[in-house]
Design a protein around this nucleic acid. Structure first.
Lengths: 155, 155
DNA sequence: GAAATCTTGTTACATATGTAACTAATCTAC
DNA sequence: GTAGATTAGTTACATATGTAACAAGATTTC
């Protein structure tokens, strides 16, 4: 494919930020629909479960740092998950403000059920890429993320 | 960079849909902040203006098709832009339901002011890519978009 | 040509999200 | 040890968004 020529005109369908946004929304909403219909979880609840599945005992602040969520979103997701009995808080013994979060047995069960579904979505997305294309993609995403200034206040 | 090994475990920070989402949100919110602070437009209003700048006289339905917006979002954006005098509706002579939309002089003025800013954001995002990397990126995004089933109902 | 169906777009309502203000705990400076 | 500043997390409120129901025009079927 020839390189695109970028002139002073803007064509929305060729505008990279637009294309990224559409792609990301398409992917995310397909996956979100799986979480929602099978487990009644929204994306944020799932993200919290995902990092707690990897790293039990994180605080809400840690979770925010690892999920690109702001603290209010984390607080809401944690409250909902706790109300459903999917996670547990344990107040930090040395800091009464913070609480360590862990998945309950029921939370772990859902976690282990979702992981393969999430990975299957990822595989479907990458189905038509060769291994070397996948490798390029990862490198390019890293580079782009470097260029995109993360200006949102997350905490 | 070596290819990632993808096992049965899920690491959120390596999960492609997550990475896409974070990247896209970072990029979009940086640009949105420009639209908002300088012109008082949100992303959807801007998308509508962008396609009407390229192709005057589209109907709301056409706009939805070209912007990956649903019809309610288009309706709301159009109403806001019309209220601000940035676009005009003209009822379709052969179909009383539809209206052709065009930017007013004031709308065009803002359009021509935003375009270079939007392109500058895109350039900043792509600043660290070589021409051949850019070309790879475009190809990969096309492939990914092909794999991601667009299951959202837009109209 | 009238009834049923479909299409374009809007409206209403419920829910989600972002921002700011807040509480309570900890830390720092003195 | 206490006043002020910071930090962890929550709450409240305003706004944004998604879904469904709707109105009005166009099309199809008979």
């Amino acid at each position: 494919m020839a390189d695109q020529i970028r002139t002073g005109a803007l064509t929305l369908s060729e505008f990279l930020p637009y294309r990224l946004s559409v792609l990301s929304n398409t992917v995310s909403s397909a996956i979100a629909e799986t979480y929602r219909s099978k487990f009644g979880l929204n994306i944020w609840q799932w993200r919290v479960m995902a990092v707690l599945g990897e790293a039990p005992g994180l605080t809400a602040r840690d979770v925010a740092g690892r999920t690109a969520m702001d603290k209010v979103a984390v607080s809401r997701a944690v409250a909902a998950l706790e109300a459903r009995g999917l996670l547990q808080r344990e107040v930090h013994p040395e800091d009464g403000r913070a609480a360590h979060l862990t998945l309950t047995a029921q939370g772990k069960k859902i976690y282990t059920e979702i992981v393969p579904l999430a990975l299957a979505h990822e595989e479907a997305l990458l189905a038509h890429l060769t291994p070397s294309e996948l490798s390029s993609l990862e490198r390019l995403l890293d580079k782009l993320a470097g260029g995109a200034s993360p200006n949102r206040k997350l905490w």
